[in-house]
Structure formats: structure tokens, C-alpha cells
């Protein structure tokens, strides 16, 4: 980790996940062999915190970028770190195809059900009835369609080897999330196929709540809709 003033809001899940990523790379001794791809979204500055070589991809294209890199540098740890707007909306095509080709990369997916960076607009993962800046009366099926379960879709694709949904709201969950990310990174190194680690996350600012309220809201509303646990593991 670098000494960088934190740009994330208090209580934001991004910061916790960054720390896990940094710890795992260090524990694996992979500093010289990691190529990390950050998204457009609040995590656009991920490179400021974890001192490995980083590439900021354009909005949604991180999986394409990572696919090429892993093929050209097959012995490196290559992973993307993306938000729900980045991975499940503008970049759905690149996401599905990287997963389906079974690219030997890890994908970390921060699902906070909102566009955090641009100020709290509706995301493809926004829950039914949830209010955002662009669905101020709550998400409605006839106007906005349904939340996209991209992680569940990933399970169906033959290229994926490991698909899991985690959270970082409690110490126990943080431990599990760390184990999951480490497994995904090892899969990339062992060329087992694509790993997708979804982290069901909070965005207190976008949700217009305090960090405590946001955590509780996530437990009450997000977890029933996006249940935690492994969805697929062909490596074990």
C-alpha cells in the first residue's frame, strides 16, 4: 500500500477491497509479476494505493485490455477491478466475452448498485424500488427493466472456473472475501480460466446514508437479492 490521502468516502467498500488486494499480492510475492487494470468509476484511482503496475482502462473495457495482456504475458498475474456500471453495463460485451473465452484473469466486481463516481445514478444492478438520481421515484420494471445478475450469468459460461459473491461488511466476511480473491489470483497464475469475485458493496454517498445505515441497508436489501457464497468452483 502507498501513503496516499484516501479519496474514497468514509465507509466505502472500495478502500477495504484495495487493502485485501494489496495484502494478497504481497503475501503471494507477486509485486513484480502483477499487471492490474482499474476501471472508470470511483476506483479509477486504485493505482494510487497499491504499488504494482496499473493500467486505467476506458469505461467498461478492462476485460478486453486484460485479455490481451494475459495472452501476451501468460506468466503474470492479471486482474481487473471494476464497478457495476463499468462491468455490467457499458462493458457487458467485453465482460461476457472475456469470461466466455476463459481468459486466465481474475475479475473483481464491486457491486454497489449505483454509479458512485458520477453522483448516484441508476446502475444495471440497482434494486427494484431503489431511488437514485435518474430513477428518483424508485426503479420500476416498466421504465427501467430489471437488475442484471451478471455474476449468475457468468456461472453459465464454460470459460469461468470460479464465480463467487462476497462482502466486506464484517470481519468474518472480510476474511472470506480475502480467501476468495486469493483463490481467483491463484487461478490466474495456474491458468485455470476466468474467476469472477463479486463484492456486494455499499456506497453511502450515492445511497444518501451514513456508513452505518448503508451497511444495514445492504444487509437488509442487497444480501437477499444478491446472496453471498460460491456460485461455481471447478478448481477444487
Amino acid at each position: 500500500m502507498n501513503e496516499t490521502p484516501m479519496h474514497y468516502c468514509p465507509g466505502c467498500s472500495h478502500g477495504v477491497v484495495h487493502k485485501l488486494v494489496a495484502e494478497i499480492i504481497e503475501e503471494m510475492g507477486m509485486e513484480e509479476d502483477t499487471i492490474a487494470i482499474c476501471p472508470v468509476g470511483c476506483a479509477v484511482f486504485a493505482y494510487r494505493y497499491v504499488d504494482v503496475d496499473w493500467i486505467e482502462a476506458s469505461h467498461g473495457r478492462a476485460p478486453a485490455c486484460a485479455s490481451a495482456i494475459k495472452r501476451l504475458w501468460p506468466n503474470k498475474l492479471v486482474f481487473t477491478y471494476q464497478g457495476d456500471g463499468d462491468m455490467a453495463c457499458i462493458g457487458t460485451g467485453e465482460t461476457i466475452h472475456a469470461l466466455n473465452r476463459g481468459e486466465n484473469i481474475a475479475m473483481i466486481f464491486i457491486n454497489n448498485a449505483i454509479y458512485g463516481m458520477t453522483g448516484g445514478q441508476m446502475a444495471p444492478t440497482t434494486l427494484m424500488g431503489m431511488k437514485t438520481a435518474t430513477c428518483p421515484y424508485g426503479r420500476q420494471a416498466d421504465l427501467h427493466g430489471y437488475p442484471l445478475h451478471i455474476t449468475d450469468l457468468a456461472v453459465q459460461l464454460e470459460g469461468t472456473c470460479y464465480v463467487t459473491r462476497q462482502a466486506v461488511n464484517t470481519v468474518a466476511n472480510i476474511r472470506k472475501a480475502k480467501k476468495a480473491i486469493r483463490q481467483a489470483f491463484e487461478n490466474s497464475m495456474n491458468k485455470k480460466g476466468t474467476s469472477l469475485v463479486e463484492i456486494v458493496s455499499t456506497c453511502a454517498s450515492g445511497w444518501k446514508m451514513t456508513p452505518e445505515q448503508a451497511n444495514q441497508w445492504m444487509v437488509d436489501n442487497m444480501f437477499p437479492y444478491y446472496p453471498l457464497g460460491d456460485l461455481k468452483n471447478t478448481v477444487e
Binding site: R61, S67, H97
Partner: peptide, 22 residues
């Protein structure tokens, strides 16, 4: 040499971008 049929030109240019970065 690596040869990959991308899913779109959007993907191809971003593959080029990633490769160029390295």
C-alpha cells in the same frame, strides 16, 4: 505471436491499448 479474434472493434482497440501499455 498472439492472434485473437475479438468480440468487436471496441474490444480490439482496447486489447491494443492494454498490450501497448505493457
Amino acid at each position: 505471436m498472439v492472434v485473437l479474434q475479438a468480440e468487436s472493434e471496441l474490444a480490439s482497440i482496447n486489447m491494443l491499448y492494454g498490450a501497448g501499455c505493457t
